[in-house]
Amino acid sequence: MSNAFVYNFDQVQNEMRAMAKELLESGEATMVIGWEKGALPYQSTPVMIRSAEDVDKLIWDAYCQQNLSTYLIDYIYTDEKVAIFAKGCDTRAYNRLIQDNRIKAEKCIVIGVPCPGMKNAREAARLPENAEVPMANACKECRYPNPVVFDKRVGTDVTAWCTERDFSDVEAIEAMPADDKYAFWQSQYTKCIRCYACRNICPACNCTSCIFDQSASGWCSKDINASENQFYGVTRAFHVAGRCIECGQCEMVCPSEVPIMLMNKKFIKDIDSLFGAHEAGLDTNTPAPLSHFSVSDPEEFM
């Protein structure tokens, strides 16, 4: 993980600004989506830039964790040609959205940015100023810090600092007695306020109409209690099973700090062991595990 601190953010930032300027001036892109500095040192927020004069707003620092690919969905029916800056996880999200037919490649320009791993903004908010901020949880297990698909790119490739997923947290829960497991998830899901931020940010959760917006269907109520929250939690995790790219955005945005990735990683672990290793979003040809089947799948229901 040490390469995070020799990485030269300023140099990449300059390249990003030059690239954005070139794209906007030449008219190749009508808009560039990147990050700008937020109100606090540990906040970097998305910014949409339409004029070459504004490119100095763009920044690149250790808090640009937010995935920008999901914004492309908003421009699918417009005449815009949108350029986005994309880290490794953002490019995997981009592939997912292409595969789900939610965006069109010809309307997007992906500018790949190798990423040294982002810092944990939530911890940064709690730690005293100038303290060493740990890496964001999802970034610790990142195996694809370099863009997997891009039209243009800035910066130079970094070496991945992680080679295998760490399932020890999932295994710890699996080893608990059933009642303890249930108590653990109850304690987590009683914190949930059903703001749906995890759904909104997720590049795998991209349905045009969501089951949780249709309370008249009788599926789920708007009640906020442990039962309904758990229904929401399991359903959300199941809907992204096999399509989760492990960007950790869901946990990042959760105001109640529900360990959402623990659910996603459980599905990833089971899919890998039951149906063979699968990495969502590495390309657009491999079908998602739950959208196809094999006649030789494990048989437990005889």
């Binding site: 249930y182 108590a183 459980k266 089971d270």
Partner: peptide, 22 residues
Amino acid sequence: TGNYYTRRRFLLINRMMEYMGI
């Protein structure tokens, strides 16, 4: 092919229910 999809889904959801403490 319907039940092949059932098999994939329920292999996963069985494990998830157990993970949730059911």
